[in-house]
Amino acid sequence: MATGSGAAAAAADAEEKESGSRMITLTSNEGKAFVVTEASARQSATIRSMVDDGGCVDKGFPLPNVDSKTLARVIQYCDEHGNKEAHTVDERAALAKFDKDFIAELDADKAFLYDVTMAANYLHIQGLFALTTQCIADTIKGKTPEEIRTAFGIEYDLTAQDEEEIKEEDTHA
């Protein structure tokens, strides 16, 4: 058993390690800096590998493909998943509830859903990417091509050759 002060220091050390209390700065393409915990930043495989490779942790990470509004929302997800425990049933339920509310808001704003999906893809945040792509897939499900075009604001641009290919496949039998 260590002495009082030693034990306290060891506990603080362990706590620092566990909670990843080292801070990391992420900078949006508008130059706005966001300071996050390492545990939060490590939700991104892209940043995680840069940190583990001894990258420029002190200087922070510029993210030229992500705007401030999107980055703030992405960090909100990373904070929730990186900083909070999910061991008990209640904790897991709270996280699931967070995900549900988080994606419901994006679902109502397709442009924002697009931006967050792109950022999750770029930063390799697996859980967030799974969440947004599932939302996109759910929007597509059960719809006709025209309804899908309307939902996402896509123009019909199939070429005569595309149409020929589709027709050929349809009448293959």
């Binding site: 091509p145 899908i148 896509i154 199939l158």
Partner: peptide, 12 residues
């Protein structure tokens, strides 16, 4: 085949 793949050129 009947939905997403008929939306536009790149989706096809």
């Amino acid at each position: 085949l009947m939905g997403a793949g008929l939306v536009c050129h790149s989706w096809l």
